[in-house]
Computed example of a mutant assay.
Amino acid sequence: MKIVVIGGTGLIGSRTIAKLTEHGHEAVSASPSSGVNTLTGEGLADVLTGVDVVLDVSNSPSFEDAAVLDFFTRSTTNILAAEKEAGVKHHVALSVVGSQNLPESGYMRAKVAQEKLIRDSGEPYTLVHATQFFEFVNSIAGAATVGQDVHLSHALIQPIAADDVATAVARATAGEPLNGTLEIARRDWR
């Protein structure tokens, strides 16, 4: 199976490509460094030629409310249009557990908008919702540190390792479209 991974050079994308390749799939990374710009659509038609599945694990370079919404809506719109033109059979996207429950977060509103575009596209899809990655705990604590004090939310979290996310995403990508959502958290998906 030929699979294009949008965001294939990132934390989850690179690990997912390795897992898909181990299982005999042709997994191709698509990112600005490989000449694919999902915001402008540049390179999408070429990279999607002969592709069976698109996996989108890309992330916005900015977390400012308007910028992140623009990134996910424009990028997803361009990817879906190029997929339709190329005859791609399955769209898989990585999102966040509970995104619909945090409307005060601009990032979560953007992920909800992205998911709606995918669901409303009429194309076969699978959404994978993951909890926060263990690999980001240090940067979360760092961003919440003022002097010697760390100010963290009282919210409970259930972090998951990036390798486990990559395994779940690879399985969803190689599988049949769910036309729904798979939620994963530390070992819950096994």
Rank of each mutant, 00 (worst) to 15 (best):
D56H: 07
V57G: 06
S58N: 07
S58E: 04
S58Y: 06
S60T: 10
P61I: 07
P61Y: 13
S62Y: 09
S62H: 08
F63W: 11
E64K: 14
E64F: 12
A66G: 09
A66K: 10
A67T: 07
A67Q: 09
V68D: 00
V68Q: 02
L69P: 10
L69S: 12
D70C: 10
D70E: 12
F71N: 02
F71S: 01
F71K: 01
F72S: 00
T73V: 09
T73C: 09
T73A: 07
R74E: 15
S75M: 02
T76L: 02
T77N: 15
N78F: 03
N78E: 03
L80S: 08
L80D: 05
A81W: 10
A81P: 07
A82D: 03
E85G: 15
A86S: 13
A86H: 09
V88K: 03
V88M: 05
V88N: 06
K89V: 10
H90Y: 12
H90M: 10
H91R: 08
H91K: 04
H91E: 05
V92G: 10
S95E: 11
S95C: 12
V97W: 00
V97M: 00
G98A: 05
Q100D: 15
N101R: 14
P103L: 01
E104P: 05
E104I: 09
E104G: 11
E104Q: 12
S105T: 08
G106F: 08
G106T: 11
Y107K: 02
M108Q: 14
M108W: 14
R109S: 03
R109M: 04
R109K: 03
A110T: 04
K111N: 13
K111S: 10
K111R: 15
V112I: 04
V112W: 00
V112N: 01
A113C: 11
A113R: 07
Q114R: 13
E115Y: 05
E115I: 05
K116Y: 11
L117S: 02
I118T: 05
I118H: 05
I118G: 04
R119Y: 14
D120C: 01
D120V: 01
S121H: 06
G122P: 04
G122R: 03
Y125R: 00
T126R: 04
V128I: 08
V128L: 09
H129L: 06
A130K: 02
F134L: 12
F134K: 08
F134W: 13
N138H: 11
S139G: 13
I140P: 09
I140Q: 13
I140G: 11
I140V: 13
A141P: 13
A143S: 15
A143Q: 13
A143T: 13
A144K: 13
A144H: 10
A144I: 10
A144M: 10
T145I: 07
V146L: 09
V146G: 10
G147H: 08
Q148T: 15
Q148W: 15
Q148H: 15
Q148C: 12
Q148P: 13
D149K: 14
D149P: 14
V150L: 11
V150A: 11
L152S: 05
S153T: 09
H154N: 15
H154I: 15
A155F: 08
A155Y: 06
L156N: 15
L156M: 14
I157T: 09
Q158S: 15
P159A: 02
I160F: 00
A161T: 12
A162L: 00
A162H: 00
D164E: 06
V165A: 02
V165M: 04
V165Y: 01
V169W: 04
V169G: 01
A170L: 03
A170E: 01
A170Y: 01
